[in-house]
């Protein structure tokens, strides 16, 4: 869940890109290239991070690519099989449904963005001690264990004794079996995903909002623009770098959705067959069926899709993202 986002989320990126002084700082660092003693310290400083990335991200990615062309024995030992894993994955009868579930889930997850913006805007209006309290409340799901979150939601969603269906019964609605009826599972999971990501998105939008200079609003007010006009003409365009950043992260996270399927739906569930995601197929292959090579092939395909999608998003951003 969102927990895993932390290491890969350079939260300062949109802010840095959006503000003038830091960009100038970047230019100055570049000018010092001529003095070896100076820049060697810079590289030494980032060495631990780069070494960590190389050991725990880059090297494993290279290994995964290699292993995707092999089959594994249960207790180790690989055999080169060429493209067989990729062929088996692409002809898996479960793939179309899993791909559709993954895409649908990711699209639903994008709904978290408007909710987060509204929350961040509301919190920005608040003054005093309450801000910290609300911010903590909304951020709690982000730092909660995904497994615990899933268990609590599973209980809320219980078709017979769950709180949600109890509340629905008060208004005369007979609620469905949210986590064991395949018609509802993806939506039920998306609600949990949106709820979990609100806090994290909200922090980013909150920072984005704080970066918008007050004098724009003052000028707009003098020109007679109302609150709504101010929001759409000033806030939204100047928040677009944050929106872009969050939407890229949301798509990456959404396409890798796995833990809610396992923890909230469980393995012996009649709805599971219709609710699997791509990452769940990966889990089944690697952890249940001992087909590590096949799992690596799925991971490589997923990574390729993510790279293309992210590249497309970066291309499209020129059309709608405004850097100040």
């Amino acid at each position: 869940m969102a927990l895993a986002k932390a290491p890969s989320a350079p939260a300062a990126v949109p802010a840095a890109a959006a503000t003038g002084p830091r960009r100038r700082l970047g230019v100055r660092v570049g000018e010092q290239n001529g003095h070896p003693r100076e820049w060697i310290w810079g590289y030494l400083m980032i060495l631990p991070l780069v070494a960590g990335l190389a050991c725990f991200y880059l090297w494993p990615i290279a290994q995964s690519c290699y292993y995707s062309f092999t089959t594994w024995g249960v207790f180790g030992g690989q055999q080169w099989v060429g493209l067989a894993n990729y062929r088996a994955f692409l002809s898996d009868p479960q793939l179309p449904k899993a791909a559709w579930n993954t895409v649908l889930y990711s699209l639903l997850m994008l709904l978290a963005i408007p909710f987060s913006i509204v929350l961040a805007a509301l919190l920005n209006q608040l003054r005093g001690r309450h801000v910290g309290l609300y911010r903590t409340l909304y951020f709690l799901p982000v730092v909660s264990m995904p497994a615990a979150v899933a268990m609590v939601w599973r209980w809320l969603y219980n078709g017979d004794y769950g709180l949600i269906n109890y509340l629905l019964s008060l208004v005369g609605v007979h609620g469905p079996h949210w986590v064991s009826d395949p018609r509802f599972t993806v939506y039920a999971m998306a609600v949990v995903g949106i709820w979990s990501s609100l806090g994290y998105n909200m922090i980013i939008f909150s920072a984005g909002l704080k970066g918008i200079p007050r004098h724009y609003y003052e000028a707009a007010e003098l020109d007679g623009a109302g609150r709504v006009r101010q929001f759409f003409s000033i806030t939204l365009p100047l928040l677009s770098p944050s929106i872009f950043f969050v939407s890229v992260l949301t798509v990456i996270g959404g396409l890798q959705m796995f833990d809610t399927v396992l923890m909230m739906l469980g393995r012996a569930n009649p709805a599971l067959a219709g609710s699997k995601t791509i990452a769940y197929l990966f889990y089944e292959d690697v952890f249940l069926d001992n087909r590590q090579g096949m799992g690596c092939a799925i991971a490589v395909v997923l990574m390729a899709v993510l790279l293309v999608l992210t590249a497309v998003q970066f291309r499209l951003q020129k059309k709608w993202v405004h850097y100040e």
Binding site: S8, P60, S64, P146, G193, G253, Q256, F258, A299
Partner: peptide, 8 residues
């Protein structure tokens, strides 16, 4: 959101 299973 999905855990980074492809990385972990």
């Amino acid at each position: 959101m999905g855990s980074k299973i492809t990385r972990t």
